[in-house]
């Protein structure tokens, strides 16, 4: 429960950067932070630790015949979702960076207030 709480704190740091920062690179950094935190939260949810049991990755030839398989292996479904989400996150970050580069080329600053003041 403490682990989930600390990852929520990381999500809130990213949200804070996105909303209150006035620099475009800082906003992109906030997006990346929030994305990492959400991915990590997914991986934590797919990890069903039972005391006394050892968890191994879901790469195996034959399965141990236990009643609850997820107490011996980590859950493959959140891992598969996060795997695609990481790559999408890099694409989105690159798109934000290209927009920032373009705007810097036009007005010579990363400042969002400056852009708002120019208006057209």
């Amino acid at each position: 429960m403490l682990i989930l709480g600390i990852s929520l704190v990381l999500i809130l740091i990213g949200l804070y950067a996105i909303i209150t920062k006035r620099n475009m690179i800082k906003v992109a950094v906030g997006f990346a932070l929030m994305e990492y935190a959400v991915n990590f939260l997914f991986a934590i949810i797919g990890f069903h630790k039972v005391p006394g049991m050892k968890i191994i990755p879901p790469i195996l030839m034959e399965v141990k015949t236990t009643a609850n398989v997820l107490s011996s292996y980590s859950d493959p479904v959140p891992q598969a979702l996060v795997l695609t989400s990481i790559v999408i996150g890099l694409g989105v970050t690159a798109f934000m960076l290209s927009l920032a580069l373009r705007i810097y080329n036009r007005i010579g600053s990363f400042d969002l207030d400056e852009i708002k003041r120019l208006k057209g």
């Binding site: 991986a43 990890f47 968890i55 891992q79 795997l83």
Partner: peptide, 15 residues
């Protein structure tokens, strides 16, 4: 590193 601790080696490589 946290993905390795969480037994998700695929995610660790990609990350």
């Amino acid at each position: 590193i946290g993905f390795i601790v969480l037994q998700a080696p695929d995610l660790a490589i990609v990350q």
